[in-house]
Amino acid sequence: MARAALLGRLTWQLANVVELVEETARVRSIVLDPPAWPGHRAGQHVDVRLTAEDGYQAQRSYSIASAPEDGYLMLTVERLEDGEVSPYLADELRPGDELELRGPVGGYFVWEESLGGPLLLVAGGSGVVPLRAMLCHHRAVESIVPVRLLYSARSLEEVVYRDELMRMAAADQIDIRFTLTREQPEGWQGYGRRIDRELLDEVSWPPGEHPLVYVCGPTGFVEATANALVELGHEPARIRTERFGPTGG
């Protein structure tokens, strides 16, 4: 993309809601068809703007879940009970509605093959969303960069993209490990505790291999994970984080 185009203003556009996918009881994916999408890189986000009848507006940022190669734009939104925008997106929005957005935004929490690896992705809850875009991009470009995803969720029911990730995990190229912190189904073979130093040591590439690490999740999760990785000897400059706080939504 030309630099001039990159420097141009990100203008608001109205995207048609093509499809809604209930991922879990609290998480929904929104498939959109923006008329003038300039393309994005895996890990970027968009700004969404809602307007009430009296002109009142609310804006929030949401990670892009779809890969750049997908023919549509997908956002995945977790409903925050005391939120203002996420309950609307998760409950009220219907196919055929239009959603105002602008983007893509952000250029650091981004992975593309030229950045190399080995790649370690660590997700807490709905923090898996931008990492899903990276995994799908990895697959779409048939990358040979070794990749692992460590995904922490409270229970199997709360794992976003569960079937898709299970299918990916069954394939050889992508190594996916789950840890279920509150409730594990009978016969569960994965981990069953919060991510700690020991678990990270077991799952991550050795620090000597200089893995590139992306951590996304709630603030406390990201803080604990990034600190533990630094303690294990990983280079701080190779650890990219994206945090969402108690508010947002």
């Binding site: 603030t219 803080e223 990034a226 630094v230 650890i239 984080t241 706080g245 108690p246 508010t247």
Partner: peptide
């Protein structure tokens, strides 16, 4: 917001 969200690009 009443909270104090944290946003950083890397480890603290």
């Amino acid at each position: 917001t009443g909270d104090f969200p944290v946003l950083s690009a890397g480890p603290t």
